[in-house]
Amino acid sequence: QSPCWRRIQRLKDEGVIRSQVTLLDRKKVGLNTQIFAEVKLNAHGRSNFTEFTEAIRGFPEVLECYVLMGSVDFLLRIVTSDIEAYERFFFEKLSNVPGIQEVNSIVALSEIKSTTSLPLV
């Protein structure tokens, strides 16, 4: 075992390295459309929050979900094959999640920067 391997193993054991993954080009696998959805819940109780987050975790189309402060409660990053697939996702899944008051969908036209690298100096 090399010193490098031991250091990587230690970082994994300490939880600094959460996982090792392969990054795919979403367009090359047919996921050509990226949407950001701002979601507002109709109430802010713990049960609404829990129900919403559990539902979102079950949708493979949702790659990221953030809790926000301000006029909306959540920001979702969603990928689908095309806008019609997003429309199906929206009407068949997202809009059926209990507690949603409003969804504002924003279609990304192009991607200027996308990275998973952290700014470690």
Score class of each variant (00 low, 15 high):
residue 114 S to L: 14
residue 68 L to W: 11
residue 29 V to E: 04
residue 66 Y to N: 07
residue 102 E to C: 07
residue 84 E to F: 10
residue 92 E to F: 09
residue 111 E to K: 05
residue 36 F to T: 06
residue 98 P to Q: 11
residue 13 D to C: 06
residue 40 K to Q: 11
residue 44 H to G: 07
residue 19 S to G: 06
residue 72 V to H: 09
residue 110 S to N: 10
residue 80 T to A: 01
residue 43 A to N: 08
residue 9 Q to D: 07
residue 30 G to Y: 02
residue 119 P to L: 05
residue 82 D to L: 03
residue 64 E to L: 15
residue 53 T to V: 13
residue 87 E to R: 10
residue 82 D to E: 04
residue 36 F to W: 12
residue 62 V to L: 04
residue 110 S to C: 09
residue 106 I to A: 09
residue 119 P to V: 03
residue 92 E to R: 08
residue 90 F to L: 04
residue 51 E to D: 15
residue 86 Y to G: 00
residue 102 E to V: 06
residue 39 V to H: 00
residue 65 C to K: 04
residue 66 Y to W: 09
residue 39 V to G: 00
residue 84 E to C: 07
residue 74 F to E: 01
residue 82 D to A: 02
residue 34 Q to M: 11
residue 16 V to L: 08
residue 102 E to H: 11
residue 91 F to T: 07
residue 38 E to D: 13
residue 26 R to V: 10
residue 118 L to Q: 12
residue 49 F to P: 02
residue 31 L to I: 08
residue 50 T to V: 13
residue 79 V to F: 10
residue 5 W to S: 13
residue 9 Q to M: 11
residue 39 V to T: 00
residue 65 C to N: 09
residue 3 P to D: 09
residue 1 Q to S: 15
residue 20 Q to R: 12
residue 115 T to G: 04
residue 94 L to M: 03
residue 109 L to C: 05
residue 3 P to H: 08
residue 87 E to T: 13
residue 73 D to K: 03
residue 56 I to S: 03
residue 31 L to T: 08
residue 30 G to M: 02
residue 11 L to E: 10
residue 117 S to I: 12
residue 102 E to T: 10
residue 116 T to A: 15
residue 46 R to W: 12
residue 5 W to R: 13
residue 77 R to E: 12
residue 13 D to E: 12
residue 89 F to V: 00
residue 121 V to I: 13
residue 20 Q to V: 14
residue 99 G to I: 01
residue 91 F to L: 07
residue 32 N to T: 01
residue 2 S to K: 08
residue 116 T to E: 13
residue 118 L to R: 10
residue 88 R to Y: 12
residue 35 I to D: 01
residue 31 L to F: 08
residue 59 F to H: 05
residue 72 V to C: 07
residue 64 E to Y: 15
residue 101 Q to A: 15
residue 71 S to P: 09
residue 96 N to I: 09
residue 82 D to Y: 02
residue 51 E to Y: 09
residue 75 L to I: 05
residue 38 E to W: 14
residue 107 V to G: 04
residue 35 I to A: 02
residue 100 I to H: 00
residue 74 F to T: 03
residue 79 V to T: 15
residue 55 A to T: 12
residue 120 L to I: 14
residue 92 E to W: 07
residue 67 V to S: 15
residue 53 T to P: 04
residue 33 T to G: 01
residue 118 L to I: 10
residue 9 Q to P: 02
residue 31 L to V: 07
residue 87 E to K: 09
residue 43 A to H: 09
residue 103 V to T: 09
residue 30 G to E: 00
residue 115 T to E: 12
residue 75 L to H: 05
residue 52 F to S: 00
residue 105 S to T: 11
residue 7 R to A: 11
residue 37 A to S: 06
residue 38 E to M: 15
residue 109 L to V: 03
residue 103 V to A: 01
residue 26 R to C: 10
residue 104 N to E: 15
residue 80 T to L: 01
residue 105 S to D: 08
residue 32 N to H: 03
residue 110 S to H: 06
residue 25 D to Q: 07
residue 42 N to W: 12
residue 120 L to T: 12
